[in-house]
Design a binder for these strands. Structure first.
Length: 195
DNA sequence: ACGCAGATTTTCT
DNA sequence: GAAAATCTGCGTT
């Protein structure tokens, strides 16, 4: 998988812009070695915009061991564990010390289908934040790593047309449910299902 | 196709 | 003790 990595400067901006801008880019994982490389095009994301966002883990500047990566440099991974069994992957945004991130919710699978099927055991492979983590082998071991080099990378992809980006309420949260901070590609069959 | 409950553990109250 | 940025399996329609 080739292409230039998205640079830190891209992430050091308002989280909603980064979220929209990530659509169409490519997430690559070399977890388990390059022979088991997996990759997909980002088709669905959610913005968690900072201490003033009741749904953000760092709401009210809750700085704990868990939320520490949110305060780290832009362009790194925030991987958290939830519901007793699932990992979810975020890209940390905004300047260092401002705790915000973009949750990667769904990918269009592009490479490493056999590895993804083996890890997942079933379809869909990458439609849902915990599903794509399982398919790409993402766990807490990757919490805080760079997304510009190393085993997890986000590469420049094809930028979608603006009119193909849809905004709507975030999923699975109980706070600030009417902020339209979920973005996805219109008509994509890889977007996760809404309950 | 839809709805509901179970899984399982970290984190904070 | 309860909730959590979820997913799956099983029941019913």
């Amino acid at each position: 998988m080739q292409g230039s990595a998205v640079q830190a400067k891209f992430y050091a901006r308002p989280t909603e812009s980064v979220a929209r801008g990530l659509l169409g880019h490519i997430l690559v994982s070399d977890v388990g070695g390059r022979r088991h490389q997996t990759a997909g095009r980002i088709v669905e994301v959610e913005a968690y915009v900072g201490p003033h966002d009741p749904a953000c883990h760092a709401y009210g500047h809750r700085r704990t061991p868990r939320t520490e990566p949110l305060y780290g440099p832009p362009g790194t991974a925030y991987v958290y564990f939830t519901y007793g069994m699932h990992w979810c992957l975020n890209a940390v945004t905004e300047p260092q010390e401002f705790p915000a991130a973009v949750l990667i919710r769904a990918l269009e699978p592009l490479a490493g289908f056999a590895t993804m099927r083996k890890r997942r055991g079933k379809e869909p492979l990458c439609s849902g934040p915990a599903r794509l983590c399982e398919a790409l082998g993402v766990t807490g071991a990757l919490n805080g790593v760079s997304l510009q080099r190393g085993v997890l990378r986000i590469l420049e992809g094809t930028r979608p047309r603006k009119r193909d980006i849809v905004a709507g309420p975030r999923i699975g949260i109980t706070q600030a449910t009417n902020w339209p901070l979920r973005y996805y590609l219109k008509g994509s069959p890889w977007v996760s299902a809404v309950r």
